[in-house]
Design a protein around this nucleic acid. Structure first.
Lengths: 348, 348
DNA sequence: TCAATTTAAGCAAACGCTTGCAAAATTCAG
DNA sequence: CTGAATTTTGCAAGCGTTTGCTTAAATTGA
């Protein structure tokens, strides 16, 4: 029923070795032979068995993606970018949505992974040094997205600088009591981006000679709900902030919701700046830091593919630019706002 | 360096056949032997090579997911559900994000797919009869999510009924000029859900003895932007609708934005109902139809896994329940609204 | 024209597992 | 106890490629 390489060889009148080489475009094949083989393959509707090919060659033509929450905006975008460039290079992409680190460790160490993928893309949660070593031993290239890791390729943004810019924007607008909605330090997963963003936030204060009142820090977990809760806490303070920097747009959405629930208005009573430039942020009129998420994924995949083609390629560390997008969720402290906001998402 | 089944066999003092059977928990192995083998395997840090196993057995332990836009909320949630249950059964999941149908057809027909996956999950875009046949011939089970397809498993919601309920809600509130933001009939991909939702919308009118003014229909493409554009058109009519049903929450978000941009208020001037119950809808205070997206994915994966275990299992067609969630984006026509809306997302 | 190179093609041994069938060991019935 | 039935194990033939090595053919240089 299904044609094998032997069938092709027979029809083309050559050996299977030649078929294999011809079909893969290897150099040592005459144009005529190659043509003959192609014809034979086409006539038999032949397609190589990736499985057999994998066993024989040890290459899987697959790249693995490890990401914590693939249903979240950020990770979904990332995966989408990765998938696009991988597939266009003929690579399959295998998704590992691992929330628990022990699962990941198991995956890495038992070289389970070596049998399945040629290269690995790790999103946001940087691998430990042990894990990196383990991967190196198996000789599988790794790229980390959203974090910098020794001896790994990395593709990321400058979270410190970006957060500093965002906070600076608030400071420039005259705000001095600025709240921070950050990732909870209690949560078990050790993302580095939130930490960096917090650092940037503090740095902006420092450089402006401002003192950060640490009671103005509240914690969330990068979800809308948690952002709402955190903002609730901030609003219940004796002296609430006049502006808030949220480490993600989704938390910002929650914060906005809480603010309205408290009968306050944005940006009249409180300014908000987020981080990510979520698809909805434009419509929510949220001032934010835009990061090219899909592009991060595409770039990381591309780097890995290059490295597979040419194993001697040196590791790279790419930092992509971000951009402060000023919309209508922030205003100069004390200034009157000129009329009603046009183009706002909300106010249902 | 890495242990093979032969190493285990040697250490355990049995044949490779026995190791294979023991490790896979097949019945014809004594408990003692099994134990011996397990010990040996553990001591060698052995793990089977999926590749070799695939070649020998013809099973890939992988399920493929074909989805058009994996970075969209709906599909990301779906994939997340699929991934969870697949992985917990030891199956890998391979993502095919195919926007173009010809790519998909190629994938199906050249039995490329047979070599890669044991079963296939097709999201939203129902396969053609040719494609189904092709898959059947290769003997690979298929489940379709979000559409009903002959001779395939399907997991979906009742789009007609749900849309009818949503529209009915508007009608019950006294609205008679109801707009529809539907998927453009021009776009090349033939989703069935939008069509069904439109049917439900019309049906509700019909059953209420209402006439639908077809000039109140505008088109989008399930994105926020397109929803905004569509709503813009509706608002520019001489006599705009007093309520609008959007075929997705994301288009509803766009519509909301457009309405505010026009200086109108929701629900005072216009009522909006969406479809999906997007993560943000609760915060946007959007009345909508909730569908259990992640559960759809989980169920579909589960069905497929069952069918792989027991190939004689009959095909199933599952319809999951949806629910109208009334929030603050709809109100009775002509009634005064009691005070300001609490908990709204927007009004930045 | 002929040896020396270079290039193209073929041989056959992996790759690491699964599985049908046969053999051995065990259990059972009488 | 013994032969039959049953259970457990082993043998070895695949599964469909790739690739190192060898051989044959073509090209080159003198």
């Amino acid at each position: 029923m299904k044609a094998t390489i032997e069938d092709v060889a027979r029809v083309a009148g050559v050996s299977t070795a030649t078929v294999s080489r011809a079909l893969r475009g290897l150099p040592s094949v005459t144009p005529e032979t190659r043509e003959k083989v192609s014809q034979a393959a086409a006539s038999l509707d032949y397609v190589v068995s990736p499985t057999a090919s994998r066993l024989a060659s040890g290459k899987t033509s697959t790249i693995g993606v490890i990401a914590p929450f693939i249903d979240r905006w950020y990770f979904a975008k990332l995966v989408s970018g990765i998938e696009r460039v991988s597939r266009s290079s003929g690579f399959d992409v295998l998704i590992y949505s691992l929330e628990r680190l022990d699962e990941r460790e198991r995956l890495f160490q038992h070289r389970l992974v070596k049998e399945r993928v040629d290269a690995l893309l790790v999103c946001s949660l940087p691998p430990s040094m042990d894990e990196v070593r383990s991967l190196q031993q198996m000789n599988i290239p790794v790229a980390v997205i959203g974090a910098e890791v020794d001896e790994c390729n990395s593709v990321r943004i400058d979270d410190v600088q970006s957060a500093k810019t965002a906070t600076g924007h608030l400071i420039n607008m005259g705000h001095t009591r600025i709240g921070l909605i950050a990732e909870s330090p209690l949560q078990p997963l050790s993302f580095t981006a939130p930490r960096d963003r917090r650092d940037g936030f503090l740095l902006a204060h420092q450089e402006a000679g401002l003192n950060f009142d640490s009671s103005l820090e509240a914690y969330g977990s990068f979800t809308i709900e948690s952002g709402e809760r955190a903002m609730g806490e901030l609003l219940s303070k004796a002296q609430p902030p006049t502006a808030v920097f949220c480490e993600s747009d989704e938390m910002a959405f929650g914060a906005i919701s809480a603010i309205h629930r408290h009968g306050l208005r944005i940006p009249d009573d409180i300014s908000i700046v987020g981080f990510d430039d979520h698809d909805l942020s434009k419509f929510a009129n949220l001032t934010t830091i835009a990061q090219p998420v899909q592009l991060l994924g595409e770039t990381a995949a591309w780097i890995l593919l290059e490295q597979l083609k040419e194993p001697t390629k040196p590791r790279t560390s790419t930092v992509m630019p971000t951009q402060l997008i000023v919309r209508n969720s922030t205003k100069r402290l004390g200034s009157d706002r000129a009329g009603a906001v046009i183009g706002a998402f909300g106010s249902i």
